[in-house]
Design a protein around this nucleic acid. Structure first.
Lengths: 343, 343
DNA sequence: TTATCTCGTGAGAGCGCTCTCACGGGTGCT
DNA sequence: AGCACCCGTGAGAGCGCTCTCACGAGATAA
């Protein structure tokens, strides 16, 4: 006893002890703590005084053990952080989900999962019952995490459409439609030799944005050429490299749709290095409406995703699941064109 | 009973059930699960088979209740996310702490705390015993969180020096020394009318970097002029505004030390708008070595903080505290100049 | 008055786990 | 053969909480 109280934190008071001080039973203290109506005002006051005096804080583990609820929601990010931080989409997601969760008096925790080892740790973390629900941000096609959570019976909502048959409820932007918008805009600006720098095609978002590009060309009866397509991995360097290659093969391109703003920034640099003027010689449209889109030179015309709405949908779907209604559903929200100087 | 098992997840198997299947007691299963050496190989194998068959996952709440450990560490961010995401410093912190924590077989969770209401929620979260320790990122002078955690007996390490008398162990970069370095470099480049755009002076980091600026001027016997100092809040816009004002009052400035790269990016734009060439007319040095520093035009000369070392120090200090050694200490790591094109 | 209801309260079980302790069957020692 | 030891195992207590249930006191109805 004495020894125990010496090492580390001095053992925190328990319900029983609060009860002893207030002259009531553990059960009554519990009622007061949980705001149960069946506690007389007099007793309530007495108990509250005792709680304040002892600095009582309920032990979460004990409560969780019996209620089977943790009152915390995890935002699991199954991506390299490098890609995720600085992504405005991610920041908005955190803010939005955080606010929604906070409103329900839950606590949001962010959990990073990159690499197989981390995946396993995160899966274990969730399965062990640390959280009541999961918002999973994962853009990779073959991510095992969504399936694992669903199988474990954890309420889960995915942000970003998964590849293949979606077994998990998800929310995504209309990437294909957005890409179409971008390319249509380039076409309207009288561009005819329109190239694209795609994202990784093992990601749904990469594929979708590429399909949108093709849709628009097809609709305008512009023939598609293989040489006008270059892949990238959403990084700035990739954008630079891809555009350089594009220029080598097609010195005559007059428009580029780039599947992410970061890559577009790289592309812009490459164009400048090659002596091309933007938008006079080559018009450029990006995707994401990242903050940096405002600060490239010229400022980047791009496609915006309605983050607020996505966030609202996501949290709503999650809470519905946590509450018990378990439906596999999904929502696609529209995207829009933001006109700046690059196109 | 039947009702309970109908709603939500089908109740997960317990130690007892695994034991029944394996034909051993709960205690023995526990030994196998926890890798205790006192379990014979034969029994171990049998138990492991039962675990696999039932898909047993230990209940964390129950374990925590008795061990009083959660095996999770929180990274509490007591800042508006807007400022924090995209901050390379923060990303590196997450990666680094994450790796260190992972190595110890702990789980890292990120917790955001902005606004008083959130502060309270986070404090409650931590006090309730959700985590074994906290890394607290907070740059505000009067943040109540560090004190609260320490008072609650939670192992805590602060990243960024707090204002006033530090009661909490912390790790910080040598902001003052770094700023001195920056200004010394400008002086060495024969700049004599050196202005500065400071950070918020209610933050330690803001004050420190300003003091460094003054140190360098004093050492070089360059008189300081009030008009050469403008405050900002670390955002790009603030940098733009501040530099514009600076130019109005002092058309003849030939060097600027900007207390953050983001503000420096804004300043660079303002300089361009004003028709000043960088670095020929005005040399600029930033602070942070943010990724964007590489991509401004011209690329930004700046001060780098050794993130890796800060992270290593932070996690080491935290683990030491969690292990029981409770010392109030602190570490300041050196900064260095990164030469690019803007100075 | 007696019977019937509230209504606030306490006793007690039990959530799933860890950990101490006692026990029985080897070993190795005298 | 007798003793002292391990060493693997099970029984059982107990972590701090919630929640059901029984109970007694007071209010209401007959």
């Amino acid at each position: 006893m004495a020894l125990k109280s010496m090492r580390g934190a001095p053992r925190r008071p328990t319900l029983e002890e609060v009860g002893a001080v207030a002259g009531v039973s553990r059960a009554t203290v519990s009622r007061v703590v949980n705001g149960s109506p069946k506690a007389s005002p007099a007793v309530r006051a007495e108990v509250e005084r005792a709680i304040a005096r002892l600095g009582y804080v309920p032990n979460r583990a004990a409560r969780t053990l019996v209620t089977r609820r943790t009152d915390t929601i995890a935002l699991v990010v199954s991506e390299p952080e490098a890609r995720v931080f600085g992504d405005p989409f991610f920041a908005a997601l955190v803010r939005g989900i955080g606010a929604a969760v906070s409103m329900k008096d839950l606590q949001l925790v962010l959990v990073m999962a990159q690499g197989t080892r981390e995946h396993e740790k995160v899966e274990r973390y969730v399965r062990q019952g640390h959280v009541d629900g999961v918002v999973l941000m994962s853009l990779h096609g073959e991510d095992p995490l969504p399936g694992a959570f669903v199988e474990a019976g954890i309420p889960t909502v995915l942000v970003g459409r998964p590849k293949g048959d979606p077994v998990v409820p998800f929310v995504d932007a209309d990437n294909r439609g957005g890409a179409r918008l971008a390319v249509q805009f380039l076409i309207a600006r009288r561009r005819r030799r329109i190239a694209t720098i795609t994202g990784p095609l093992d990601m749904c978002v990469g594929v979708d944005r590429f399909e949108g590009y093709r849709d628009a060309l097809t609709a305008a009866h512009i023939p598609q050429r293989k040489g006008l397509v270059q892949g990238g991995d959403f990084t700035e360097e990739a954008g630079h490299v891809a555009l350089t290659r594009l220029l080598e093969k097609n010195p005559d391109i007059d428009g580029v749709f780039v599947a992410s703003d970061l890559m577009a920034a790289g592309a812009l640099q490459a164009l400048r290095a090659a002596g091309r003027r933007v938008p006079q010689d080559v018009a450029v449209v990006g995707f994401d409406d990242a903050p940096l889109a405002r600060h490239t030179s010229p400022a980047l015309t791009t496609i915006r995703q309605p983050l607020d709405e996505m966030v609202a949908q996501t949290s709503e779907m999650l809470f519905r699941q946590v509450a018990g209604a378990s439906r596999t559903e999904h929502v696609i929200v529209p995207t829009s064109l933001i006109k700046r100087k690059s196109a």
